[in-house]
Protein backbone atom coordinates (compact mmCIF):
# COMPACT_ATOMS: atom_id res chain seq x y z
CA UNK A 1 0.00 0.00 0.00
CA UNK A 2 2.74 2.35 1.08
CA UNK A 3 4.75 1.26 -1.89
CA UNK A 4 2.06 2.14 -4.43
CA UNK A 5 1.52 5.51 -2.72
CA UNK A 6 5.22 6.20 -3.10
CA UNK A 7 5.03 5.18 -6.74
CA UNK A 8 2.14 7.54 -7.39
CA UNK A 9 4.23 10.36 -6.00
CA UNK A 10 7.04 9.40 -8.36
CA UNK A 11 4.76 9.21 -11.37
CA UNK A 12 2.95 12.41 -10.49
CA UNK A 13 6.22 14.24 -10.13
CA UNK A 14 7.22 12.97 -13.56
CA UNK A 15 4.57 15.18 -15.07
CA UNK A 16 4.96 18.20 -12.85
CA UNK A 17 8.05 19.49 -14.48
CA UNK A 18 9.53 22.91 -14.18
CA UNK A 19 11.53 24.54 -16.86
CA UNK A 20 15.09 25.50 -16.18
CA UNK A 21 17.06 27.33 -18.75
CA UNK A 22 20.71 27.04 -19.49
CA UNK A 23 22.73 29.94 -18.16
CA UNK A 24 21.80 33.12 -19.92
CA UNK A 25 24.02 33.73 -22.91
CA UNK A 26 25.78 30.40 -22.54
CA UNK A 27 25.64 28.44 -25.76
CA UNK A 28 25.12 24.71 -26.07
CA UNK A 29 28.47 22.98 -26.59
CA UNK A 30 29.01 21.27 -29.98
CA UNK A 31 29.01 17.84 -28.35
CA UNK A 32 25.77 18.50 -26.53
CA UNK A 33 24.32 20.06 -29.68
CA UNK A 34 25.10 16.83 -31.53
CA UNK A 35 23.36 14.75 -28.86
CA UNK A 36 20.33 17.05 -29.03
CA UNK A 37 20.40 16.96 -32.84
CA UNK A 38 20.25 13.19 -32.86
CA UNK A 39 17.53 13.23 -30.22
CA UNK A 40 15.53 15.64 -32.39
CA UNK A 41 16.16 13.52 -35.45
CA UNK A 42 14.95 10.45 -33.54
CA UNK A 43 11.67 12.24 -32.75
CA UNK A 44 11.30 13.14 -36.42
CA UNK A 45 11.96 9.53 -37.41
CA UNK A 46 9.42 8.35 -34.85
CA UNK A 47 6.91 10.72 -36.43
CA UNK A 48 7.76 9.31 -39.89
CA UNK A 49 7.19 5.81 -38.57
CA UNK A 50 3.87 6.77 -36.97
CA UNK A 51 2.75 8.46 -40.21
CA UNK A 52 3.55 5.26 -42.11
CA UNK A 53 1.53 3.18 -39.63
CA UNK A 54 -1.42 5.60 -39.68
CA UNK A 55 -1.40 5.73 -43.49
CA UNK A 56 -1.11 1.95 -43.87
CA UNK A 57 -4.47 0.47 -44.90
CA UNK A 58 -3.66 -2.78 -43.05
CA UNK A 59 -3.41 -1.02 -39.68
CA UNK A 60 -6.51 -1.86 -37.58
CA UNK A 61 -8.54 1.18 -36.57
CA UNK A 62 -7.83 0.75 -32.83
CA UNK A 63 -4.07 0.55 -33.44
CA UNK A 64 -4.13 3.56 -35.75
CA UNK A 65 -5.97 5.56 -33.09
CA UNK A 66 -3.46 4.57 -30.42
CA UNK A 67 -0.56 5.46 -32.72
CA UNK A 68 -2.20 8.82 -33.51
CA UNK A 69 -2.24 9.51 -29.76
CA UNK A 70 1.43 8.65 -29.51
CA UNK A 71 2.27 10.77 -32.55
CA UNK A 72 0.34 13.68 -31.08
CA UNK A 73 2.43 13.42 -27.89
CA UNK A 74 5.50 14.31 -29.92
CA UNK A 75 4.08 17.78 -30.59
CA UNK A 76 3.87 20.99 -28.64
CA UNK A 77 0.25 22.08 -28.11
CA UNK A 78 -1.39 23.96 -31.00
CA UNK A 79 1.02 22.69 -33.64
CA UNK A 80 -0.19 22.93 -37.22
CA UNK A 81 0.64 21.51 -40.61
CA UNK A 82 0.79 24.05 -43.44
CA UNK A 83 0.42 22.30 -46.79
CA UNK A 84 1.15 23.75 -50.23
CA UNK A 85 1.46 22.12 -53.63
CA UNK A 86 3.25 22.98 -56.85
CA UNK A 87 0.05 24.18 -58.52
CA UNK A 88 -1.39 25.86 -55.48
CA UNK A 89 0.96 28.13 -53.57
CA UNK A 90 -1.69 28.94 -51.01
CA UNK A 91 -1.02 27.22 -47.70
CA UNK A 92 -3.78 25.07 -46.25
CA UNK A 93 -3.63 24.77 -42.47
CA UNK A 94 -4.49 21.65 -40.47
CA UNK A 95 -4.22 20.85 -36.81
CA UNK A 96 -1.84 17.92 -36.41
CA UNK A 97 -4.58 15.52 -35.29
CA UNK A 98 -6.79 16.53 -38.23
CA UNK A 99 -3.89 15.87 -40.60
CA UNK A 100 -3.44 12.35 -39.21
CA UNK A 101 -7.16 11.68 -39.46
CA UNK A 102 -7.23 12.83 -43.06
CA UNK A 103 -4.27 10.58 -43.77
CA UNK A 104 -6.08 7.59 -42.25
CA UNK A 105 -9.29 8.34 -44.17
CA UNK A 106 -7.63 8.69 -47.60
CA UNK A 107 -9.64 6.86 -50.20
CA UNK A 108 -6.98 4.59 -51.68
CA UNK A 109 -6.93 0.83 -51.49
CA UNK A 110 -3.18 0.73 -51.14
CA UNK A 111 -0.98 3.44 -49.72
CA UNK A 112 2.78 3.46 -49.67
CA UNK A 113 4.65 6.04 -47.65
CA UNK A 114 8.40 6.04 -47.96
CA UNK A 115 11.04 8.33 -46.54
CA UNK A 116 14.20 9.49 -48.19
CA UNK A 117 17.26 8.82 -46.13
CA UNK A 118 18.18 12.46 -46.36
CA UNK A 119 17.64 15.05 -43.68
CA UNK A 120 18.92 18.45 -42.77
CA UNK A 121 19.18 19.94 -39.30
CA UNK A 122 19.44 23.69 -38.77
CA UNK A 123 21.30 25.50 -36.00
CA UNK A 124 19.47 25.80 -32.72
CA UNK A 125 18.51 29.42 -32.08
CA UNK A 126 17.33 30.87 -28.82
CA UNK A 127 13.89 32.47 -28.81
CA UNK A 128 12.75 35.28 -26.47
CA UNK A 129 11.37 32.87 -23.82
CA UNK A 130 14.75 31.10 -23.56
CA UNK A 131 13.71 27.93 -25.35
CA UNK A 132 15.78 26.80 -28.31
CA UNK A 133 14.22 26.29 -31.71
CA UNK A 134 15.47 24.50 -34.80
CA UNK A 135 14.15 23.06 -38.06
CA UNK A 136 14.63 19.53 -39.37
CA UNK A 137 13.95 18.96 -43.06
CA UNK A 138 12.97 15.53 -44.38
CA UNK A 139 11.43 14.20 -47.61
CA UNK A 140 8.56 11.76 -48.06
CA UNK A 141 7.29 9.89 -51.07
CA UNK A 142 3.60 9.03 -51.11
CA UNK A 143 1.85 6.64 -53.46
CA UNK A 144 -1.84 5.84 -53.32
CA UNK A 145 -3.39 3.21 -55.59
CA UNK A 146 -7.06 2.38 -56.07
CA UNK A 147 -8.32 -1.06 -57.09
CA UNK A 148 -9.33 0.40 -60.46
CA UNK A 149 -5.66 1.15 -61.07
CA UNK A 150 -5.76 4.89 -60.43
CA UNK A 151 -2.55 6.10 -58.92
CA UNK A 152 -1.55 9.24 -57.10
CA UNK A 153 2.12 10.01 -56.37
CA UNK A 154 3.91 12.89 -54.78
CA UNK A 155 7.14 13.79 -53.04
CA UNK A 156 6.90 16.30 -50.25
CA UNK A 157 9.48 18.24 -48.31
CA UNK A 158 8.65 18.52 -44.64
CA UNK A 159 10.22 21.33 -42.64
CA UNK A 160 9.61 20.43 -39.03
CA UNK A 161 9.97 22.85 -36.13
CA UNK A 162 11.68 21.44 -33.04
CA UNK A 163 11.64 23.05 -29.63
CA UNK A 164 14.39 22.14 -27.19
CA UNK A 165 14.12 22.94 -23.53
CA UNK A 166 16.10 21.89 -20.49
CA UNK A 167 13.71 20.69 -17.81
CA UNK A 168 13.86 19.24 -14.32
CA UNK A 169 11.76 16.54 -12.75
CA UNK A 170 11.73 14.57 -9.48
CA UNK A 171 12.17 10.82 -9.72
CA UNK A 172 12.27 8.78 -6.51
CA UNK A 173 13.15 11.87 -4.55
CA UNK A 174 16.03 13.02 -6.69
CA UNK A 175 16.17 15.68 -9.35
CA UNK A 176 16.70 14.55 -12.91
CA UNK A 177 17.47 17.15 -15.57
CA UNK A 178 16.51 16.28 -19.11
CA UNK A 179 16.21 17.72 -22.60
CA UNK A 180 12.63 18.02 -23.67
CA UNK A 181 12.37 17.92 -27.44
CA UNK A 182 8.95 18.69 -28.89
CA UNK A 183 7.91 19.01 -32.49
CA UNK A 184 6.06 22.14 -33.58
CA UNK A 185 4.55 23.48 -36.80
CA UNK A 186 5.34 21.58 -39.99
CA UNK A 187 5.47 23.12 -43.47
CA UNK A 188 4.68 20.53 -46.12
CA UNK A 189 5.74 21.49 -49.63
CA UNK A 190 5.19 19.39 -52.71
CA UNK A 191 8.46 19.14 -54.61
CA UNK A 192 9.19 18.38 -58.22
CA UNK A 193 12.03 16.04 -57.27
Amino acid sequence: MLNSKFLYTVIASLFITSAVFAQSGADISPKRKQAIDSLALEKVRDLSKYISIIGDKRTPFSEATRVMDRAEELFAPDSEMGVSSINKKEVSYYKVRKYFERLMALNYDRVSIEWYNIFYISDLERQPDGRYVGVVTIYQRFEGTSDDGLKYKDTTKKDITIYVERKKTQIAGRTVEFWDVLLGDIKVTETSA
Binding site: L7, I11, L14, K31, A35, F178, D180
Partner: peptide, 25 residues
Protein backbone atom coordinates in the same frame (compact mmCIF):
# COMPACT_ATOMS: atom_id res chain seq x y z
CA UNK B 1 6.58 -3.04 -9.83
CA UNK B 2 4.07 -1.18 -12.03
CA UNK B 3 3.44 -0.39 -15.73
CA UNK B 4 4.18 3.20 -14.74
CA UNK B 5 7.71 2.40 -13.56
CA UNK B 6 9.88 5.32 -14.67
CA UNK B 7 12.32 4.81 -17.54
CA UNK B 8 15.24 7.22 -17.96
CA UNK B 9 17.13 7.35 -21.25
CA UNK B 10 20.67 8.72 -21.23
CA UNK B 11 21.32 10.43 -24.58
CA UNK B 12 24.84 11.62 -23.82
CA UNK B 13 27.32 11.87 -21.01
CA UNK B 14 29.83 14.68 -20.75
CA UNK B 15 32.23 15.17 -17.82
CA UNK B 16 30.20 12.73 -15.75
CA UNK B 17 27.03 14.72 -16.31
CA UNK B 18 24.26 12.71 -17.93
CA UNK B 19 21.91 14.22 -20.50
CA UNK B 20 18.52 12.53 -20.48
CA UNK B 21 15.62 12.37 -22.88
CA UNK B 22 12.18 13.16 -21.44
CA UNK B 23 11.45 10.44 -18.81
CA UNK B 24 8.86 7.90 -19.84
CA UNK B 25 7.19 4.85 -18.30
Amino acid sequence: SSPDTPVLIVIAEENGQKDYDRPTT
